[in-house]
Amino acid sequence: METLTIKDVRKSYGEIEAVKGINFSVEEGEVFGLIGPNGSGKTTTLRMISTLLRLTTGSITVCGRDVAGEPDDVRKVISYLPEDAGAYKGLTGRSYLKFMAGFFADGEEFEKMVQKGMEIADLGDRIDSKIETYSKGMMRRLLIARAIMPSPKIAIMDEVTSGLDVVNAYEIREIIRGIAQKGVTVLLSSHNMFEVDMLCDRIAMINEGRIVLTGTPAELKEQYGAANLEEVFVRAVKE
């Protein structure tokens, strides 16, 4: 069953067309990687799916809900984690999770959601420290927890491990793998081809606003006779 369907989507910023008619779909429980060079239209695409940017033409459907026509309903089933996202620095980690959980639930369900968030963040006593004192890794764990705790149908993550050390990046990949196993659809963008290869069931490569490749990592490596996705990426961009 398709969780996300993108049909002939275009997005223009004035005279600049950032996305030039893209099509792809993501199945339920799939980890789907959207890769491409800087400025290729990845973030624009993720923002359109997340209801942050309006489509110029085309349609995006999330769990059967139209992004342009039913944005409020779409926001109930998605969770978006922007690249280099931050949190309200004056709050503690716990307060931040409570603030965010308040948009999804109340009563007992709310308490459970916050508890779940704290377990995912796994920050120990530091959950009660001000966010401004967190390291980049701690911050990212908190944000991942925020994104996952409401049990979204689809989690959209832009450069989720960018700038993290090996241990933090590994732990976050494990979290993503864990939620995918529980049936959450994940759409992620990354410049780390190793990470994409490890995590993604399927990949779409976008270049200059157009989808130029789609397939599983294995299919793409075979198609290009490449040893790894990095090689596939470089050759696809240069073609």
């Binding site: 922007p82 931050g86 949190a87």
Partner: peptide
């Protein structure tokens, strides 16, 4: 905007 908290807030299920 600088901290991108607005982007997160705008994707919450709230009008």
């Amino acid at each position: 905007k600088e901290n991108k908290t607005l982007e997160t807030l705008l994707t919450m299920p709230v009008r």
